[in-house]
Design a protein around this nucleic acid. Structure first.
Lengths: 179, 179
DNA sequence: AAAAGAATAGTCACGCATGACTAAATTGTT
DNA sequence: AACAATTTAGTCATGCGTGACTATTCTTTT
């Protein structure tokens, strides 16, 4: 989890040196779909990466604006980035997915309420798939396009599962104990 | 994320009062598949829930063993549990899945190395599906069985995606820029 | 019976993540 | 020209999560 954030920040610095605000801005605007990292976290991560020697900081004065820290990846940083990348590519994500705990305990609510909540979830999933579909293809970067396709594929699978589960709850194929 | 852990602990207490060790033991052994919560976290969560009035603590002395805290859910705790459950059932999980950052940056590695890492990932996914398939059905609790089926469904989808992606990388349907 | 190992039941210091805050410069408004 | 709003660029206190540690009891082994 922490590794992934390190990977993301180092990956952005692999393309070009950036200052803290730029990195945060990019994460919030373009990468909002793949990371929920917050601004303060990006800054503290950069500080840690600097201390570890993976990034080099220089201070830049532009006009009479306040001085900014500019972060650039070092040679060790690049090596570290590649090591993290290999490790993360070969690992299985998602060992403990969020949202499944509530499925486990659904028996504690009446069936019709479970159905209406799952319908809410379903409509959110549909909306999100639509949003992802409208992301324009990123020509010079196969990985980004692949990762978006990956997300869409998994969400479509979840959509199917939700539809089937709601149907099974409605027609009584799935029955709660004692209801 | 924190809500899910609260939901899990309160859910366990909905069935019966437990002491800290029992809860942790249950999470580690039976729930290891759905939560990676650690022992110390369970204890600190219980302390917080106590302070919030959602659980009541009594000290129990058994034989000449050291005294144990026994945690029981209160009426407010049950109400809170049901509120969390509704909220979590109706929410879309997994907005930012782990493991996808590395997909985004795969362009930084040579194609054949990407393929071999994805093959590693694929074999882990397959193994995990096998493990989940051997979990015995839990007769009196529809939710638990459903959540396991959900996991398997999503993992099978990921397995298909990995197979397709590896194939596309191998036969050159997907090409890296400049390679 | 003595020592080693495992199970039981926690505590605590430390590190990461973040909401809330600060503060200057720039742009827009009247 | 004066004032407000927005953008830019951070900092900091606080809270959550956990690895590592403590300490007692129970169970084997030798």
């Amino acid at each position: 989890m922490m590794d992934e954030r390190e990977l993301l920040v180092l990956g952005l610095l692999m393309v070009q040196s950036q200052h803290g605000y730029q990195i945060n801005d990019f994460i919030e605007k373009n990468m909002g779909r793949v990371s929920d990292m917050k601004k303060a976290t990006a800054y503290s991560l950069l500080k840690r990466l600097d201390k570890a020697g993976y990034v080099a900081v220089t201070v830049e004065q532009e006009g009479n604006r306040p001085p900014r820290q500019v972060y650039a990846i070092t040679a060790e940083g690049e090596a570290h980035f590649l090591a993290l990348l290999r490790k993360s590519l070969g690992a299985m994500e998602n060992l403990t997915p969020q949202g499944d705990i509530s499925i486990m305990f659904m028996d504690h609510l009446p069936v019709d309420e479970v159905i209406s909540q799952l319908e809410k979830r379903l409509s959110k999933v549909k909306d999100y798939i639509e949003t992802l579909r409208t992301v324009p293809p990123h020509c010079h970067n196969v990985g980004i396009d692949l990762s978006i396709k990956h997300r869409i594929t998994l969400l479509e699978c979840d959509e199917r599962w939700l539809n089937e589960t709601i149907a099974a709850l409605q027609d009584g194929t799935i029955r709660f104990d004692g209801q």
